[in-house]
Design a protein around this nucleic acid. Sequence first.
DNA 1: AATAAATACTACTTATTTGTAGCATATTAA
DNA 2: TTAATATGCTACAAATAAGTAGTATTTATT
Lengths: 137, 137
Amino acid sequence: MKLSKTSEYALRILIYMAKKPADLYTAKYLIEQLHVSDKYLRRLMTELSKAGFIKSTQGRDGGYTFAKPINEISLYDIIDSVESMDKLNDCVLGFNECSCTNPCAMHDEWLVIRQKLNKIFHETKLSDLDFEHVLRY
Amino acid sequence: MKLSKTSEYALRILIYMAKKPADLYTAKYLIEQLHVSDKYLRRLMTELSKAGFIKSTQGRDGGYTFAKPINEISLYDIIDSVESMDKLNDCVLGFNECSCTNPCAMHDEWLVIRQKLNKIFHETKLSDLDFEHVLRY
DNA sequence: AATAAATACTACTTATTTGTAGCATATTAA
DNA sequence: TTAATATGCTACAAATAAGTAGTATTTATT
Ligand code: SF4
Ligand code: SF4
């Protein structure tokens, strides 16, 4: 019952960048600040670029910066881009076909949970986070 | 963002048994009904026994039956016994030390989510599930 | 044009989770 | 007391996720 490491990294990186959303960040700098393994972070940055959250500039003086306003990036979008958020909406019991007319015993309970989860992950944008009291990333 | 396979199996098995909570179920029968791999189910049953949800009777005419009333078994307890539910309460960002006086940027958002999740998983007992419309397990 | 500083790509290694096989142990009943 | 029918245990195998290494490519500065 958790996010994957990859999602954690993606969130930490983008949240860190969201503090000063107009800046350009190099991989090297992010690695130092966030203590994420070099190659893993770089691979992830490429994924996040392809997903459209950030854009990369190659070559000297290059780096990463946001590709769109951070109030348009939800936590849902971030997680969904690196591990499928469908998993959250998939059946808890691992059935691959389900409908409300063909439910299992957990249906009602799970529906409530997943609706709330979806709502909060969807509604929370990078810009909504509280950076005032932040002491760590 | 999901439960482990093992949790799924644990839930499916116990929910299936909860439909007729006084019955004795053999591993063989559960395997047939739930289409879970033989050895994996048996190993899991032993875990669930040790966790105190069910008790096993060895030997001929043996099997598994509930060790306590099903209104005392929450979904939280079940999942927590096979994969740590602590993971849910751990930091989303993978930090291993956190307190409310030392928060990160996601703190406020995540707190709301995890409180709701905890509440619903804790409050839902096996006996609360809707078996009326159940067509599958 | 050469150099420095950055990202992009491909293949490999390690760790974790999931699944399998085989044998040991326990209990009942003929 | 032996056969049948259960569960219990230990070690191994396969699949997936996480992390690492090395090389290629891009671009501004000199
Ligand atoms: S109704 Fe049951 S089978 Fe369908 S998604 Fe919900 S938990 Fe899964
Ligand atoms: S405050 Fe931040 S670091 Fe602490 S648990 Fe919440 S998300 Fe994790």
